[in-house]
Computed example of a mutant assay.
Amino acid sequence: MEININSIEEKLGYIFKNKEILIEALTHSSFVNENKMKAYESNERLEFLGDAVLNLVIGEYFYKKYPKDLEGSLSKMRAESVNEKVLYVLSKKLKLGELLRFGKGEIKNGGRNRESTLADALESLIGAIYLDSNFDTIKNIILKLFDKFLKEDNFKSFNIDFKTKFQEQAQKKGLKSEYKLVKEEGPDNDKVFYTELLLEGEVVGFGKGRTKKSSQQDAARDAFSRKGKDFG
């Protein structure tokens, strides 16, 4: 598979001097295994580095933004900002799933849309940019990429227990809610569950996830986004 380098560089606003490191960042271990490459030629080492750089940049951001907050509060905000769901959403915006080099088996198993894989790929990309440039450059790219999550505190919405929140609101209003599993897809080791959330028998939310619990959380999140202040 030929990678559209221009496309990702345009989205990032950064031109790689070393194109090989970009290709490495977009190379999944399944591609390496299938093509009998060296294990270190996958993006896993870059993922390790990118994770460290990302935590430093976001940690510094909160340290400066909240000068009176203590370590516990700062750590919590950082963890909420760089968790898998946030990284997944940002990687989808960059369309990383379309650019990654996978083995054929991984593609069949839904690798291009797997949350953990895309989150890891974004960290690999961050590691690659850091090595190709310098700390200030990758810092600016990260803060631009995370801008809306950080400035509007949107990262907090990715860590709310929507299922519990929905149940509490329903009980307050004397309404009956229930979750209905409507579909399962994929092999036993890589299933996707689809769930409907019903309120008084009416479908108010739809979700999907790798577990039944996560699909229910997604359905509750969807219900809140649809009903807004009427149920918030």
Rank of each mutant, 00 (worst) to 15 (best):
N55F: 05
Y40D: 10
N55V: 04
L94V: 14
L94F: 14
N55A: 06
L49G: 06
T137C: 06
L122G: 02
K17G: 03
A220E: 01
L54G: 02
L181W: 05
T195I: 15
K19T: 09
Y61A: 02
K36A: 13
N189M: 12
K144M: 10
K68F: 07
R114I: 11
N6G: 09
K108F: 15
I160N: 02
G105Q: 14
L118P: 01
K183R: 11
L118N: 02
G127M: 09
A223K: 00
K76M: 09
I129P: 01
G228W: 04
L143F: 06
S225C: 04
K163H: 11
D153L: 14
E196K: 02
I160W: 02
G72I: 07
Q216K: 07
T117W: 04
Q167V: 14
E106H: 12
Q216E: 14
F31Q: 05
N83Y: 08
Y130N: 02
S116E: 11
N159I: 14
I138K: 00
G174Q: 03
S30Y: 08
L131E: 02
D147G: 11
Y194V: 12
G186N: 03
L49Y: 08
A220Q: 00
F231I: 06
S157Y: 09
K38F: 11
F48T: 11
G174E: 10
L197H: 02
G174K: 07
A121W: 00
V53R: 04
Q169T: 10
K213F: 15
E168L: 11
L22G: 01
A52F: 10
I107P: 04
L26M: 12
L96T: 10
D222I: 06
I8H: 00
K104Q: 15
K108V: 15
S215V: 11
E123V: 13
G201D: 08
K85E: 11
Y88A: 08
R45H: 14
R45F: 15
S215M: 05
A170N: 09
L131I: 13
R45I: 15
S73M: 07
G103I: 14
N43I: 12
P67T: 08
S157G: 14
K173W: 15
N43M: 14
G72F: 01
N109S: 14
S214N: 10
S157E: 12
S116W: 09
T164K: 11
Y61Q: 01
Y130L: 13
R114D: 10
A223M: 03
D120R: 07
Y61S: 01
G201E: 04
K163N: 10
L26G: 01
Y179L: 09
E20W: 11
E60A: 03
F162S: 06
N4C: 09
I5P: 00
L100A: 12
V57H: 03
S75R: 01
K176V: 15
V192C: 04
Y130H: 07
S225L: 13
Y63K: 07
Y14Q: 03
I21V: 13
L197A: 03
F231T: 00
I5S: 00
E123T: 13
A170I: 13
